Simulated scan of single mutants.
Amino acid sequence: MVGPGSWGIAGNPISHSPTPRMFSIVGEYLGIEAHQIYIESSSIEDFVEKTSQIKDDIWVSCTSPLKHSAPTGLGVKSPGSVGAVNQLMRSGGYWSGANTDGLGFVSACRHIGVDPSIATLRIRGGGSAARSIAAVWSSEGGSIITETGRRALSSGPWDDRILESGQADLAVDLDASPAGGKSADLEGDMQVSVSYAKGASADEFAIMMLAAQHLHAWKTLFAPPRENDLPNLTEFLSRL
């Protein structure tokens, strides 16, 4: 398999992200090498300008604000109820994308022993990560209790899994600031954070989720034919 010329992370802030290293670790499993890149961009226009200077194919994970503007700015498809992508691939001059936030969250939950199909999740926030997680969590059969943060969770395919009240098995504040921002305290048997700081360890839930969504990106976007050659989440985390 021929890989890209460069892979890495794009958005702002990104200096704390281990994603470029994650690309290289998975690349070792598949026999692919590429140049690691950090593309610090606060607008899709700036991202387009910077990537236009890179002539080879590019694979990147992207954070805010790019994940929201990429569908319209690059003309890539995103899940209709989510309206954002967190993985981008430029191949032969054309961009494509995927959203693996929800898939990564659910996989990380299973990794720590929480079964979404029988669990209730309390979510604070209504941004693209919240919508992606709500979509996958509800599709697994789990229930959701919402907490309004900067914005409320909008209506979507998860509506019939929303509970007005009750006890949550798991809680997550998706309005926590990036790069290790503090989460609001939420009611639940367990609370996890999806925000990580530079140097975060592989036993932190946020890194488990990041690793899981990265593996899903290889399965669904970067290298679907090589899915069976990818490490599992436990193996991957042991390399970080």
Rank of each mutant, 00 (worst) to 15 (best):
G27S: 01
F236Y: 13
S195R: 02
P13H: 07
S128I: 00
R122E: 08
S132E: 00
N99T: 13
D46R: 15
L237C: 06
G97P: 05
A129R: 05
W137Q: 06
L215C: 08
I39Y: 09
S61D: 00
R124Q: 12
Y29A: 08
L230H: 02
A197H: 13
S238W: 01
S183V: 12
A135G: 13
N86H: 04
E140Q: 15
E235S: 04
S177P: 00
M89E: 14
P18N: 09
H68C: 04
G3E: 00
L221A: 14
A206N: 10
A200Y: 15
A130S: 01
G3W: 07
G181Y: 01
R161F: 10
E227K: 14
S139E: 14
L74C: 05
D160R: 05
H16A: 04
W137R: 03
G199R: 06
R122I: 12
Q87G: 11
E40A: 11
E140T: 11
E33S: 11
H214T: 11
A176D: 03
F222P: 04
P13M: 05
S155K: 11
K50A: 12
G181T: 02
S61I: 00
P157I: 14
R151A: 14
L121K: 11
L237W: 11
S78F: 10
A184N: 15
S69L: 12
L103H: 08
L174H: 07
M22W: 05
F105A: 13
L221M: 06
Q36R: 10
I14C: 09
F105M: 10
A168L: 03
T220N: 08
W158E: 02
